[in-house]
Design a binder for these strands. Structure first.
Lengths: 345, 345
DNA sequence: CAGGCCGTGGGTAACGTTTTCCAAAGCTGG
DNA sequence: CCAGCTTTGGAAAACGTTACCCACGGCCTG
């Protein structure tokens, strides 16, 4: 009842009329394009301010850019992803680009739906965080719109990648534990069967890094991997299995903090003390891990750096779609906390 | 180097030509509009499939809708918000609408930026979760685009609201604690000075609910509120202050789970046992609270329901912008866990 | 059998912006 | 003083879709 008449939006035509110039001139000012004198720029800008004009992105998209960047996160609940997002937005600060997030995508179908939706909306570039789709699919997306992939170890000429060195990260944990005197160090991994995923996904790399580190430390015989999933549930089930072993491990390296949460739950249920009787380590350095009473030893991936690099690469690729693709690999760091200590006995 | 030629997108004209009909006809089929025979529908649909056509949202937006809904969350890190998001998307399942999230907005300025960006992109509707902007600002947004506000107790003729009954929620906690024999029940609130916010924001309602419940239980003399902020830091500081009291409380009701986390940290530092020497309760029933080793007593807001209701109201408002506004208020439920027990002595 | 209505289909003008031209005017150097 | 360049500004045609309106035929009704 209050405002039954939705007021018409101010358009570029209104601005042009108000400033007594052509719409072309206004457009040039908006885009900082060549061919406008300083006086005209000032004049147009004043008109824009006076009228409160804002360019309509849908219309811009029809001819040029939409100044929109899409980010796809696999799971908002994982506290590691906001870090990446912060890195992206901080790098985009001051540009005309606006970030929008595609909501929870688990599974290839959902991913396809969201990426298609982003393409349909004419987004200027997209960032895919830990996508599960096939490389073919990723290349298809990247061939249509500038794309940066985070957290996948495959590489392609059509998209850039930013990854954490998961093999090195796993090694950090294993040598930390070995340095504390542990020998029976078990690992809980995310089950993977697809061969390309085994090569590209971070979880597989972590498991691989675990195995390699164990071997290089002369602990090849102690290698013990349980294959569940990167969820709290998965950690719980994995830990149950490990605790049931005749010769149970003295340390568990969970492939992700969320998995470690499940491990801690199972360990508490079994009445074992952490780290006195069993040490537990995670991966990702989430807020969960940092939380005082939990204080989980973990690996920090520098999410902020990852995001900032991804945004930088994306801007570069938007500027030149045919530049050679870049792979950025960042080194993780160990964050020792109170869930790991010297091995018992 | 691989695909230097970005392939032209399939347009409605291509489909029309391929199906040997007019573009108008294709458009009608796309929108399930009146004036197309079943045969034509089938024919057009086949052409769409064969060509892999997808409508270009930017172009649609210029004339009609963009089939895009924007959701603004104040903080992705808060585990309560994904619940709401799930509720929204589940209700939108099967419709043509796609949800996009505006990224982290703390503060009025950021909120304004994101809402403007959504409006500029021609979004068909937007959902604001716990916005901090002034009512005037909210009404302005709502006057331009269909809007639903979640978690604000103010009401307006131009937008619908979905809220949790925070007063009742606070009462649930207080009577739970009183029922366990506690009398010195303290509360940690989010500091608020702005008068309209005091009336509308959930945190203020919770503090108010706490006071009322205390009074109605004959504990008016025991009312003890510390004003910090809804952060882990805030909880920590608030707890420090409470623990320093000559007559320290036997129970602390933190206004949010994240605040309770800080409380637990401070309590652990002080060497007090929970719930033996002091009971702690939160609000929101986040995954944090549900996590076994923490097991925090909390209040569940039925985030999924909240989101689903918001989406429903938004669809209704998109269908009829002038329908009278609706306020939905949901009742919270208590989730007792292991951080609360009988009062000492 | 005339007049009107309904079901079906298409022509065409928007929508708000960018982009590609082109024209005019102001320089420069010979 | 003229030929060519540079700078400044605008006219007009896209971009892909939808909304509005009109035309055509068939059928019902009186």
């Amino acid at each position: 009842m209050e405002p039954p008449a939705p007021p018409r939006r101010v358009t570029i035509v209104d601005v042009a009329r108000h400033a007594q110039v052509s719409t072309t001139a206004v457009s040039k000012v908006l885009r900082n394009a060549y061919g406008a004198s300083p006086e005209m720029r000032a004049r147009v800008r004043r008109a824009i301010d006076e009228l409160g004009y804002r360019p309509y992105a849908a219309a811009r998209g029809l001819r040029g850019q939409t100044y929109t960047i899409g980010v796809m996160l696999p799971d908002i609940r994982n506290p590691f992803f906001p870090e990446i997002l912060d890195g992206i937005t901080s790098r985009l600060q001051g540009t005309d680009y606006q970030v929008f997030l595609g909501p929870g995508c688990n599974g290839e179908k959902e991913e396809a739906r969201v990426t298609e939706a982003m393409i349909d909306r004419g987004m200027d570039g997209i960032v895919l965080v830990a996508p599960v789709s096939s490389p073919t699919r990723l290349e298809h997306v990247a061939s249509v719109v500038p794309t940066v992939v985070i957290g996948r170890h495959g590489c392609s000429p059509v998209y850039d990648t930013v990854t954490d060195d998961d093999v090195a990260g796993a090694a950090l944990i294993v040598s930390h534990l070995a340095g504390l005197g542990h020998r029976r160090i078990a690992h809980i991994e995310h089950h993977e069967t697809d061969p390309t995923r085994i090569a590209e996904m971070p979880n597989a790399q972590r498991a691989d890094g675990y195995r390699r580190a164990m071997r290089s430390l002369g602990l090849a015989d102690e290698i013990d991997v349980v294959s569940t999933s990167y969820t709290q549930q998965g950690g719980y089930r994995g830990a149950k299995e490990l605790l049931g072993r005749p010769h149970r491990p003295t340390a568990v390296f969970a492939g992700a903090d969320i998995v470690a949460m499940g491990v801690l739950e199972a360990v508490a249920e079994a009445g074992l003390s952490v780290p006195g009787e069993i040490s537990v380590a995670g991966y990702d350095n989430t807020t969960f891990a940092a939380f005082g009473p939990i204080s989980l030893t973990s690996v920090d991936q520098a999410g902020h750096e990852i995001g900032a690099n991804a945004a930088r690469l994306l801007l570069e690729r938007i500027a030149d779609r045919h530049k050679p693709s870049v792979q950025v690999r960042l080194s993780p760091t160990l964050v020792p906390r109170r869930t790991t200590s010297a091995a018992p006995e």
